[in-house]
Amino acid sequence: MRASLSTDRIDRAWIVDRIVQVLMFLGGISAVVFIVGIFVFITREALQFVFSRFDVVEFFTSIRWAPTSTNNATYGALALMVGTASVTGVAMLVAIPFSLGAAVYISEFATGRSRETLKVLVELLAAIPSVVWGFIGLTIVNGLIIDVFDVPIGLNVLNAGIILGLMAAPIMTTIAEDALKAVPDRYREAAEAMGATRWQMIRRVVLPAAKNGLVSAVLLGVGRGFGETMAVLMASGHSINLPTSPFDSVRALTATIAAELGETAVGSDHYGALFTLGLFLFLITFLINLTADVVVRGIRNS
């Protein structure tokens, strides 16, 4: 018999494997480190403001965002929140029907080459940078709104909503299409065997089965619209306002940070207030993402 027990010793390959495992683990854990880091470093900069000047009631109920006022600086974020919400709302009105419609068409009607082409086109749309979308809002959509609705300024809720809707739609289409594709074909076959038309099959069988995926597509779209910065900054008109019509200009939470951070002194109240806005945004998007994840997990378990 070969004396083989002698090979049982810790060799180079064994050691290398251990070292690599540790390195890879560090890579994996880095994502957690970064997300915690984001929270910690933003909180760190916001802290002084939160303890010295921050007023919860004012923050959530006042529409007066006047951080640069020399004798009466106020930090009411209500108008900014309403601005973000109104723009996101219009964006969803644009994006939900079109992206879900497109997802249904691509998944249930289109075949072969046209299906592939549409998917590629949608994917390319998702790649257009937000500053380019902002520029499109600033020039093309602005002009269109002025001409069509005969209003003096086209930079408003409607403009930013349309732009955001177009931006969010491709991602929502992709996720919704994934959700529809995940519905097993035997459901469709069963429905067809019972004599259902294509549309009856989609409405009664496919859409209900894909419900969770569609909801999470919408949620991620909302998250995207909520967090979008440059496009909203450029297309919304960026003026503090509680909008009463889609033709009013508004200002969004994200855009406020982008527009003002460059002009504040590190450590000032205004600087701290902007980081507080950032913390608020971080927590809200964290919640939205968490919810979307739980909803998606719901699909996998069912």
């Binding site: 994502a31 970064f34 997300i35 984001i38 470093f41 933003i42 900069e45 937000s130 991620l220 998250g223 909520f226 967090g227 979008e228 910065t229 440059m230 994200t254 940070i257 982008a258 951070l261 902007l274 980081f275 950032g278 945004l281 971080f282 998007t285 964290f286 939205i288 993402n289 968490l290």
Partner: peptide, 12 residues
């Protein structure tokens, strides 16, 4: 979450 955090928050 890293993918979903707004870009301006990454900036902060």
């Amino acid at each position: 979450n890293l993918a979903g955090v707004p870009s301006i928050v990454h900036a902060l």
